[in-house]
Every structure is written in structure tokens, then in C-alpha cells.
């Protein structure tokens, strides 16, 4: 998720579309892919997701890193799943057979995982966090959840800075982590300190919000404009894409 991006005029097509349509498309694609089982559907979804990711403007480096992390986990699944699934043996690894059913399931899982992650990165990755929060509140997601999302993004960096400061303070006093009680206790203090500071900070933020008239209701400054000329074609294309995936799966 991008934490900035509202400062430039949107140049890419995806950034000009109504963000609500993007989020709906993402939900649709992810929903269908999650329950789909046919390779045709999964292949089509993966191809579509690749296109989304390619036009989304995410840097390739970031895509590569995310996919590498994902596939490292999936590799484990792909190795273990065929061993533990009953079915027709294809070949043997040691004493255990790799089954046909297991291999197919593993392939489906890998395809699904990549399609979902690519579609999410492509459609939501360049959406500024604040915008995503606004979209969620337009979809009547409970205010508390929306505020949690938005505040987490805003304060993550503050906490990271606080953590880095505390860690630096430990390091300049000669602290080197090892496998011993002193290390565990010191990290315990560090975690405790972060928790206490976070609590203090949240109280100060709440006080500051109260000073500016906050009484529990959060108002949005930005209102999304649904522009028919720009958003109807996208919405129609998005709906068709999701329907096509569903048709491939269930027709």
C-alpha cells in the first residue's frame, strides 16, 4: 500500500478511475479466484492480474520482491502437498509417492496465490491509504475499522522511528543481542516501552482531536466523483471481466 501519492496529478489510467470501482473489481476478482478450481479460470485470472499489475505503475522491483516472498511460502506448499495427498502416484521422492491429485492441487494453489496477490497489488497497490480508508467508509465498513486502517498507516512510521531511536540508544550503550537472559529482558523492556509510549501518544492524539471539536464522528473532506464518461466504461469492463471468470469456472 502506498502511503503517499496524492501529491501528483494522476497520470495513469487506473489512478483516474473512481477508486470505488477499483476496490469493487479487486473484491470481485479475488472472490472468484479464491473459490475457483479450474485451471482455465485460474490461468485467465493470472493473465488478467499480470496486465493489471503491469499497467498499475508499481515499480518492477517491488513486484519482484513481493512475488518472491509469496512464492517462497508457496514453494513449501508445492513440495509438501503432493506428498500428503492421497491418489495416483506419479513418481517417488524417497519412500513417499508424489500423487497426481496432489500435484494438481499444489499447482492450483500456486496459481491462485499469484493471481490474487498480483491483482491486489495491481488494483489496490497504488491507492493511497487514505483513499482506501475513504472507499471503505463509502462502503459502510464500520467507522472504527476504517479509522484503525487510516491511523495505522499514519502512525506506523512514527512507531518505527520510536523503535529505531530506542534501539539506537541501546546500541550506543554497548547492547549486543545474544541468546541470554539479559537480551530477552532488554527486548522485553523495549517492547514494553514502545507499548507505553504508544498508549501515551494515543491519549495525546485523542486530546488534540478533542481540541479541534472531534466528538466521535469522522467527516471526510474528499468526496469521490463518479464521472460517467470515465467510470462507466471501466465499471462495465470490470463487471465483464469478473463475469467472464465466473463463466469460465461454472459454465
Amino acid at each position: 500500500m502506498e502511503t503517499d501519492g496524492c501529491n501528483a496529478l494522476p497520470a495513469r489510467y487506473l489512478d483516474r478511475v473512481d477508486p470505488r470501482a477499483r476496490v469493487l473489481l479487486a473484491i470481485g476478482v479475488v472472490g472468484v479466484v479464491a473459490v475457483a478450481g479450474r485451471f482455465l479460470t485460474l490461468g485467465a485470472a493470472l493473465a488478467g492480474a499480470l496486465v493489471c499489475a503491469a499497467v498499475s505503475g508499481n515499480p518492477w522491483r517491488l513486484l519482484r520482491r513481493r512475488l518472491a516472498a509469496l512464492n517462497a511460502v508457496l514453494l513449501l506448499v508445492a513440495v509438501v502437498l503432493p506428498l500428503t495427498t492421497e491418489g495416483t502416484p506419479v513418481f517417488h521422492a524417497g519412500a513417499r509417492p508424489y500423487t497426481r491429485e496432489g500435484l494438481l492441487t499444489a499447482a492450483a494453489v500456486v496459481l491462485k496465490g499469484n493471481a490474487i496477490v498480483l491483482a491486489s497489488i495491481g488494483l489496490l497497490g497504488t491507492l493511497p491509504a487514505a483513499t482506501l480508508g475513504h472507499v471503505l467508509s463509502h462502503f459502510y465498513v464500520p467507522d472504527k475499522l476504517v479509522q484503525l486502517t487510516v491511523f495505522t498507516v499514519r502512525y506506523l512510521d512514527v512507531f518505527r522511528r520510536e523503535y529505531t531511536r530506542l534501539r539506537a540508544a541501546m546500541r550506543v550503550r554497548g547492547f549486543r543481542p545474544g541468546v541470554n537472559r539479559h537480551t530477552y529482558r532488554s527486548f522485553g523492556y523495549l517492547a514494553g516501552m514502545l507499548l507505553v509510549r504508544s498508549l501515551d501518544r494515543s491519549e495525546r492524539i485523542a486530546a488534540a482531536m478533542k481540541c479541534r471539536g472531534f466528538r466521535g464522528r469522522y467527516y471526510l473532506l474528499d468526496h469521490f466523483a463518479f464521472s460517467p464518461a470515465r467510470d462507466v466504461p471501466f465499471a462495465v469492463a470490470a463487471a465483464l471481466a469478473v463475469l467472464a471468470l465466473a463463466w469460465l469456472e461454472w459454465a
Partner: peptide, 22 residues
């Protein structure tokens, strides 16, 4: 600490927070 006072993503939202609450 300005980190306590400014909690919105954009400057406009932060400055508008008070007026909208009013």
C-alpha cells in the same frame, strides 16, 4: 509534538478536520 496534532494523510484534510467537526 506535531505528530500528536496532525494525524490525517494530507494537509488539507488535517486543516479541514476542525471546520468539518464544527
Amino acid at each position: 509534538d506535531t505528530d500528536d496534532q496532525l494525524f490525517c494523510a494530507t494537509v488539507a484534510e488535517d486543516v479541514a478536520f476542525g471546520p468539518l467537526n464544527l
